[in-house]
Design a protein around this nucleic acid. Sequence first.
DNA 1: AAGCACTTTAGAATCGTTCTAATATATTGA
DNA 2: TCAATATATTAGAACGATTCTAAAGTGCTT
Lengths: 137, 137
Amino acid sequence: MSIIRNFDKKLRSVGLRPTRQRLDICEVLFDRKETFHFTIDDLRKILKTKLHTKISIATIYNTINSFKHKGYIKEISLNSEKTYFDTNVTNHHHFYNETTNELIDFHDSDVEQLKLRKNLPGKKIKSIEVLVKVANK
Amino acid sequence: MSIIRNFDKKLRSVGLRPTRQRLDICEVLFDRKETFHFTIDDLRKILKTKLHTKISIATIYNTINSFKHKGYIKEISLNSEKTYFDTNVTNHHHFYNETTNELIDFHDSDVEQLKLRKNLPGKKIKSIEVLVKVANK
DNA sequence: AAGCACTTTAGAATCGTTCTAATATATTGA
DNA sequence: TCAATATATTAGAACGATTCTAAAGTGCTT
Ligand SMILES: [Mn+2]
Ligand SMILES: [Mn+2]
Ligand SMILES: [Zn+2]
Ligand SMILES: [Zn+2]
């Protein structure tokens, strides 16, 4: 299957061996149209119930940390209750719905160009990200 | 001293008894010109070394959680490593310097008015906050 | 001052995450 | 191909931040 092939290549390209565990996790994370926002527990449940695959919790953490270091996913800061990861590693903005706990990306086209008025001598901007919290009316 | 009087009032006004522990914590948090961004551990160290006051860690957590619920401080989401609190409870933006770990507020005047292009039918906007990560050049 | 409510406290418990070290699997190259 | 070597997985222990428990202390009301 070409997806598996692709994940195989993807993993090898950053020096990770394509083990069953890593391929299974790739399938959950990347075999989808939309950006995926998830917690370790979300991932663990999906692996168990949808993929019927058993991966130890240590390996799930190891793999997610490797993927993060390799730039396949990034961590996002929403609140201190849960640690979220995001398969969209670009610099982008989020809507967080506090009623439903849904987290969705929004794109540059959804917001007017953010312009800083402040000068930052001797500093380099690494990222500019907006978090919009909403609730159902 | 009028500051103490003020903290006394401040606490009473939301139904908290002005105990020594709460007054000491108020002094660290609010007896300053600038917004204070801190972790529980920062606070604990300041109480010990600057104020020479001993407060149990359970009380520090209890008090900070009370203050948060009463709207005296808010929690801010920077990263998943540490939990930060902020004495500026208004909706505002931050610069985080990854080199020095400094976190500073920036004000509406430092950024052009943020305009969302997206319509959000049935939703109410609770907050819009920007996090700018910078590093020293 | 007595009585009651609230607060503080030490230490235990909890929970997410990382570590350890034994076992298993993948890769290399003779 | 198949041993040797490197890397990965795993269960369970350890860790660290935070919360809980329940006993002792303090503040408020009358
Ligand atoms: Mn991490
Ligand atoms: Mn909290
Ligand atoms: Zn995203
Ligand atoms: Zn702030």
